[in-house]
Design a binder for these strands. Structure first.
Length: 297
DNA sequence: ACCTATAAATGGAATACGGT
DNA sequence: ACCGTATTCCATTTATAGGT
C-alpha cells in the first residue's frame, strides 16, 4: 500500500519513489490494463559486465512466456532515454523499462527507439511479435503528484551552486552578494541556501559562519542538473564548418568566445582530434560565424 | 493520428517590507 | 544602512483541447 505525505503547502506528495514500489505498481497496473499475467521472478541477475538487472519478469502471451530484464527508473528524462537506448542495445527485445509515468510524447519516443516499457498507470509498450502492446495516454491520478526532487533544482539553483563551488568564501557573503555573483534574483538565493542546508551540503557553524561540505557529491548533482536544465537552454545552434580544420588556427578570444573541451584537449595533448567542436560564447554571434565561415547545419 | 492553438502551472525576477 | 524574508507579478514551460 502506497504511503502519502503532505508538505508545507498542503500538497499531497506520494512516496512511490522507491524502486520496489514502482515495480509492483507497474506490474499491477499492467495486469489490470491488459488482463495479462506478469510473474515476478525471485532471482537476481548480474551480467558479466558489472551490470545489475533490477528484476526479472515473465509475461505470458498466448501460452508463450517471454522473459524480461527490468530496469526500474524513478524518473525518465531525455537524458536517461539516451542512456537506456545505449544500455539496451545488446538485446533490446529482452529489456523492459519500468517507471512511474510515461507521457504520451515520451511513449512515442520510446517506441521509436524500440525501448519497451510499462508504467504505474498502465501505459505500456511491448513489442514481442506477433504481439504488440502500445498503451499511452493514461494519466497519473491527481494523487500521484510528482514528488519534487526536493532541492535546489532549477536554473537559479544551478547558478548559485556553481558560484558557491567556485568561490569558497562566497557562502559567508550576504545573500545580495551571492545573488550578484550568480546572476540570480535575491529571493532565489534564500531558497537554494535553505535546500542546501536541509540536504546537509551547507553547515551553519555559527551566526555568521557557513561552510559548504560534501563538495564532490554536490558537484555530481550539479553536473546532472546542469546537463538537464541549463545546458539545453544555453544551446545556441549547430553549424557546419566549411573548412574542417578551421579550429586549428582560429583565434576566437576577441569574439568573447571560448573553445570547448575537445579543442582544449587537443591543444594540450596534440593527440585526439575533436569530432565535434564546441564553442562557448554569447549572443550575438554573427561576427563569429562570419569569421569562422560556419554554415547553419 | 498529428500538429497547432489555448490554457494552466511553475519558477524565478522584481519589489516591498520588517528587523537588526 | 544593511540584510534576510515575504509578496507580487511576469515569462517560460507543460498539459489540454481543438482543428486538419
Amino acid at each position: 500500500m502506497p504511503m502519502f505525505i503532505i508538505n508545507e503547502q498542503g500538497r499531497i506528495l506520494n512516496m512511490v519513489t522507491r524502486e520496489n514500489d514502482i515495480l509492483n505498481q507497474a506490474i499491477e497496473a499492467f495486469q489490470k490494463e491488459t488482463n495479462l499475467h506478469i510473474e515476478l521472478g525471485p532471482e537476481q541477475l548480474v551480467l558479466d559486465n558489472r551490470r545489475r538487472i533490477d528484476a526479472i519478469l515473465r509475461i505470458n502471451l498466448h501460452g508463450k512466456t517471454t522473459e524480461y530484464w527490468a530496469e526500474v527508473k524513478t524518473t525518465v528524462t531525455n537524458i536517461t532515454v539516451g542512456q537506456l537506448a545505449h544500455q539496451f542495445e545488446d538485446n533490446p527485445e529482452k529489456c523492459l523499462l519500468i517507471t512511474r509515468y510515461v507521457q504520451p510524447q515520451l511513449a512515442k519516443a520510446l517506441r521509436d527507439l524500440h525501448i519497451q516499457f510499462i508504467d504505474t498507470v498502465g501505459n505500456a509498450y511491448i513489442d514481442d511479435p506477433p504481439t504488440l502492446i502500445y498503451i499511452r495516454g493514461n494519466k497519473p491520478q491527481p494523487i500521484f503528484v510528482f514528488m519534487p526532487e526536493e532541492g535546489m533544482l532549477g536554473r537559479a539553483g544551478i547558478q548559485v551552486i556553481f558560484a558557491l563551488l567556485c568561490k569558497r568564501e562566497l557562502c559567508n557573503a550576504p545573500y545580495r552578494d551571492i545573488a550578484e555573483q550568480a546572476q540570480v534574483a535575491l529571493g532565489a538565493v534564500a531558497k537554494v541556501m535553505k535546500d542546501l542546508a536541509a540536504q546537509g551540503f551547507l553547515i551553519e557553524l555559527n551566526d555568521k559562519q557557513r561552510r559548504l561540505v560534501r563538495r564532490k557529491e554536490l558537484l555530481d548533482k550539479w553536473l546532472n542538473a546542469y546537463a538537464e536544465k541549463l545546458r539545453p537552454k544555453k544551446f545556441i545552434d549547430r553549424y557546419k564548418a566549411t573548412k574542417p580544420d578551421f579550429w586549428q588556427q582560429a583565434e576566437i578570444d576577441r569574439f568573447d568566445a571560448q573553445w570547448g573541451g575537445e579543442v582544449a584537449a587537443y591543444r594540450l595533448t596534440r593527440y585526439l582530434k575533436p569530432e565535434i567542436v564546441t564553442i562557448y560564447t554569447r549572443k550575438p554571434i554573427h561576427n563569429l560565424i562570419l569569421n569562422l565561415k560556419l554554415r547553419q547545419d
